[in-house]
């Protein structure tokens, strides 16, 4: 079992960047108004952020977020040791998004860079990766930037009314820094895979020969409900904590049906399981940080630890119990490139 502790680092700030352009599921063509209302009721998704313009690169969204993060944390680029990007919508496969950002934004040579190909579970995988690398560094103070997110609308076929109403574009940039005590436990993670579910979300060629995302909604539901609650229970047991310990449970924003089933199976009160589905839809690996952005100015602190759980494409699932007391975690920023 990939039950892992991380030590000596925490999230200092989160910036999320979404396209200004918004689509409303009530405006979907070729669907009756009753079906559209039912769709919104069951998926929980009304609005989607989309930037499917040809040539738009997820790198540009990451870069904008990095500028904001550095400015808000008052960090110099020269102080960044790690830059890792988690995305599945690169416009080119070589070189990596992180190396391109490093070059274009003129980071220093000392910065470690690579990409992780991961979707809905990607924020949790990325955070665990970054924190583990940080702990192994041969220096006391380490700073990292983790970029997560996709421009999923680039993978949606124009008339696909199954996939289109769910996915939304957005990225999150997370600043992570060493704590005073490098041996203090700052995270517990449970990272798992059910690869037999690889066909639940995949890409295949459309009529125009481009690759588009396909979903099997029933199988996604089945894998999520079968494995995610157990993944979370096993994590809490590993951390020797009860279900009432985390201040919040922030789930990947898959859709309301799935998220509500998981919440009910765990017996959690709605007040500690926030959702950003209505405004932001399913933003893949950015959905957990975007949800944090939307609630943090009014959050209630108890223990200062939150539980995060990402699950989906793969079928991959990852939960983390993390210390979360950021300096800032502001509302998502809308941009127009």
């Amino acid at each position: 079992m990939a039950l892992i502790k991380t030590f000596g680092s925490t999230i200092k700030g989160i910036v999320s960047v979404v396209p200004k352009s918004t689509e409303d599921n009530l405006d979907l063509p070729n669907i009756s108004i009753e079906d559209k209302e039912s769709l919104i009721k069951h998926t929980g998704i009304r609005f989607r952020k989309t930037d499917a313009k040809s040539g738009v690169d997820v790198k540009d969204y990451f870069s904008k977020g990095i500028e904001e993060l550095l400015s808000n944390l008052n960090w110099e680029k020269a102080s960044i040791d790690i830059l890792i990007c988690v995305t599945q919508t690169t416009t080119i496969s070589i070189p990596s998004v992180s190396c391109r950002i490093h070059g274009d934004m003129k980071f220093e040579k000392q910065t470690l860079c690579y990409d992780i190909n991961s979707g809905c579970s990607g924020f949790v995988y990325g955070l665990q990766t970054v924190q583990s690398i940080m702990h192994g560094f041969n220096q006391k103070n380490v700073r990292a930037i983790l970029c997560c997110g996709d421009l999923s609308s680039q993978l949606i076929e124009e008339n696909d009314n199954t996939t289109k109403p769910i996915f939304s574009d957005g990225v999150s940039i997370i600043g992570i820094e060493s704590t005073e005590d490098r041996n203090e436990i700052t995270g517990y993670f449970n990272l798992e895979t059910a690869g037999q579910g690889q066909s639940a979300i995949f890409t295949s060629k459309g009529a125009d020969d481009k690759k588009y995302m396909r979903l099997n909604g029933i199988d996604i539901y089945n894998y999520s409900v079968k494995y995610v609650p157990k993944n979370i229970i096993d994590l809490l047991e590993f951390a020797s904590k009860e279900l009432n310990f985390p201040d919040y449970f922030i789930f990947h924003q898959a859709n309301k049906l799935i998220n509500e089933s998981i919440r009910k199976k765990l017996g959690l009160d709605e007040s500690i399981v926030p959702s950003s589905l209505y405004e932001f839809g399913n933003t893949a690996s950015a959905s957990i940080p975007i949800t944090l952005n939307t609630i943090w100015e009014n959050h209630k602190k108890n223990n200062g630890w939150i539980l995060i759980s990402g699950f989906g494409v793969g079928f991959s699932m990852a939960s983390g119990l993390i210390k979360f007391e950021p300096d800032f975690c502001m509302q998502p920023i809308e941009i127009e490139l």
């Binding site: 039912s38 069951h42 089945n222």
Partner: peptide, 15 residues
């Protein structure tokens, strides 16, 4: 019956 209602139906059975 639709893909959405099939999913709702299956989720309700599970609940």
């Amino acid at each position: 019956w639709s893909s959405l209602n099939a999913l709702v139906f299956i989720s309700r059975i599970n609940e």
